[in-house]
Design a protein around this nucleic acid. Structure first.
Lengths: 341, 341
DNA sequence: TACGCCATCCAAAGCGCTTTGAAAGGCGAG
DNA sequence: CTCGCCTTTCAAAGCGCTTTGGATGGCGTA
């Protein structure tokens, strides 16, 4: 059933039917009701492509996933972030689309999305410290919003980010207050912006407490269970192991815990652990008492806010970019305790 | 830049330009090259919606995620499965779209996707034992393919599934061979088809070995870390705890391991564990030696195969449905050992 | 020279919708 | 009764592409 058929059936013009369904005022209430009922009854839905062609909008938000970041961090948070974003999009009538891009083809991919007109805007994830995608998108004029920030980019743009620096400063201070002095940082890859900020928070807290930053206590890798495990094992096997470890992700933290237990140590007693927790719905940090002491911030919530910002900026293209800095909450669980004497 | 402009610039008709770009034979090679170069140079991409309108195809594959299954199992495998499917789709020129659906609105959602013409086909995940979506999609004529099967549906349809029954039978036999007699099963929700099949495999192996099936050793819940943990704790606290546990997912298995270690037991020595491993790229089962003995089957690979099947069936609507049963591989890791005397 | 046949290219219709510009009808004011 | 003004409805153009059904011209053949 298409508009033409529906109009014929009702004995009205396509114009009137279209207007009735789209809530325009130039239609009498009686007619509108009649049209709506007929549409309902025939299960009529305007064809997306035709509507898009006519309006010039695709009502679609794109997520572009570079192949290289598929292992780095995207996957774990991916599901929840996207869920948050896509629910927000759906509420505003937007669909969600995915594009996976081979490394190096990013420019082509964005140009293609823009050229083909398949999306009205895109969401970027895990920006690097210097991320050329932002300048690129500005240049080609494709609306976008970033989950995270890119330190080297001074232009303003839409973003939502967790305050990684303050979260990790706070976590480090918490450990220092518990008497820890040898605190390790198991970070994500430090080309990633969030990783740099977390490190900054960590080092600034150490420095403020007069503790020398020890490079041998810091490592940065992809955030997987396996890598968390071997980084921790290396730390524990060193001559002077840390008494506390700060971890950048729940996934890594699972590996950290495994290494600790394999070494016959007890987490929260022999060694303390704080992790960042994206509050993933399928990897909850315990039910009532958290397993890990953690800096927690819902990535799902971030997705939702970011989608709103992007859609608003599509609706009013001339308005200035918006952004939001979310503060992570420090939840105290069983993985932290006083430094061993 | 659109087709009209490009055609004007070249001094050709839109027809010729379109044909040149789409590889039709009625264009001389010289002209084709000239057109291709101009298109390249002006960065021309045919507008998706216009093309879709004209051809009647959207070149889009949809994934529909019911809200209720968002916690159940979808999330962990979600990322990898979708990655596999979307790469395969992209190779065939298809984009990937997501729709999240509130419970009970599934019928409306599929009808809407169909009516709006926004997708050429959809992929279904985690079917239940009796899943009404399959009949619905057949009824409304929207091409689809299922990741998994639905036992109660006798009609034929496109699917890809792991042989859950044989995988879990094999795993159970492996434990029996190691001398285990009290083997527990921590399963996913048993309305889900895969969970039923895994249970069938488990019970059939027990029966074949003349071991009575003990309902107190079987539980079925959402497959999260937290639920794996408390189900294991309950098992271990019972009067006659199992000597081995079969687990339906890596995520649950992480919780299982935590409970085992909290109880002061050693996995692989005091108690054996076998899990199903979807070979998730961000939650690898160890690097060289697997952490867990596992029935392994790449969900990413399944996604890829399923997408191919769906796209083929869209291309040739009259061809009979296709399906593929993947055999899981039993990888032996450190989590299993002889039953304690 | 005349004819027919390819190879190559084109004009125009059509996909299903929105939206502009105009017509038709109803009604009160003059 | 006529005029002008709303309100309600409509015909038709246009969005950017594909595709049908020609047109055109070059070339070999008779």
């Amino acid at each position: 059933m298409n508009l033409k058929q529906l109009a014929e059936e009702l004995g009205l013009s396509q114009t009137t039917v279209s207007r009735a369904l789209n809530g325009y005022p130039e239609v009498s209430e009686g007619t509108r009701r009649r049209v709506q009922e007929a549409a309902e009854q025939h299960n009529y839905r305007p064809n997306t492509r035709a509507k898009g062609l006519a309006t010039g909008r695709s009502m679609m938000i794109g997520h572009v996933i570079p192949a290289s970041t598929q292992h780095e961090m995207v996957n774990p948070v991916f599901g929840d972030f996207v869920a948050g974003a896509s629910i927000a999009c759906a509420n505003r009538g937007y669909d969600t689309m995915f594009t996976r891009v081979d490394d190096g083809d990013e420019e082509a991919a964005y140009r293609s999305l823009m050229g083909k007109g398949s999306v009205d805007g895109v969401i970027l994830q895990v920006p690097k410290i210097h991320d050329s995608r932002i300048a690129l998108l500005k240049r080609i004029g494709l609306p976008f919003a970033v989950h995270g920030r890119s330190s080297d980019v001074t232009d303003s743009y839409n973003w939502v980010d967790v305050n990684n620096t303050s979260a990790f400063r706070r976590a480090t201070e918490f450990l220092i207050d518990l008497g820890h002095r040898r605190i390790a940082l198991i970070n994500g890859l430090e080309i990633m912006d969030f990783a740099k900020r977390r490190r900054d928070g960590y080092t600034s807290a150490l420095e403020a407490a007069g503790i020398a930053v020890d490079p041998s206590l810091m490592s940065s890798e992809e955030m997987t269970e396996v890598s968390g495990h071997h980084q921790t094992r290396d730390l524990l096997e060193s001559a002077t192991p840390p008494t506390a470890i700060l971890v950048a992700s729940m996934i890594s933290a699972l590996g950290v815990r495994r290494a600790i237990e394999e070494a016959g140590l007890k987490m929260g007693k022999d060694i303390s652990v704080i992790t960042h927790d994206d509050d993933l719905s399928y990897l909850k940090n315990g039910q009532d008492v958290p397993i890990f002491t953690a800096t927690r911030s819902s990535v799902r919530n971030a997705g939702s806010i970011l989608a709103e910002i992007l859609i608003d900026s599509i609706a009013t293209p001339l308005s200035p970019p918006r952004h939001k800095l979310l503060e992570a909450e420090l939840v105290v669980g069983r993985s932290t305790g006083p430094a061993p004497a």
